[in-house]
Amino acid sequence: MKEPDIIYSDENMIIVNKPAGLAVHGGGSVVGETLSDFLLKKFPELSRVGDEPGLRPGIVHRLDRDTSGIMAVARNQKAFQELKEIFKTRKAEKKYIALVCGAVPGRDGVITAPIGRLIKDPTKRGVEHIRGARDAETRYKILKRFGKEYTLLEVLPKTGRMHQIRVHLKSIHHPVACDVKYGGKKVCCPAGLDRFFLHAHSLSFSYPEGRRWRFEADLPEELEEALKGLAHL
Rank of each mutant, 00 (worst) to 15 (best):
R62G: 03
L55S: 12
A200R: 05
L99H: 07
T151R: 03
V24F: 11
F38V: 05
V187S: 11
A231V: 02
M13G: 07
E82S: 11
E128P: 01
G50Q: 13
G147L: 00
A98Q: 09
S204C: 04
T112D: 10
S202K: 01
K95W: 07
A200Y: 00
V187I: 13
A136N: 02
L193M: 15
A98C: 09
H129C: 12
H25P: 15
L230D: 10
G184I: 00
D51L: 14
K95Q: 14
C188Y: 01
F205N: 04
V127K: 03
L169A: 10
L152I: 06
L35Y: 03
G26V: 01
R62Q: 14
N12Q: 01
L63G: 08
T151G: 13
I15P: 03
L99Q: 09
S202H: 05
F146L: 01
L233M: 03
V24R: 04
R107I: 04
V16K: 06
L153E: 13
K148M: 09
E221D: 10
K91I: 06
V24D: 10
E33K: 03
G69S: 11
K186V: 07
I59G: 11
R211G: 03
Y96Q: 00
R211V: 15
A20S: 13
H232A: 08
P4Q: 00
Y96W: 01
K2Y: 02
G54D: 10
I115N: 10
V167F: 01
H168I: 00
L219E: 00
L227T: 12
L153V: 02
G27W: 07
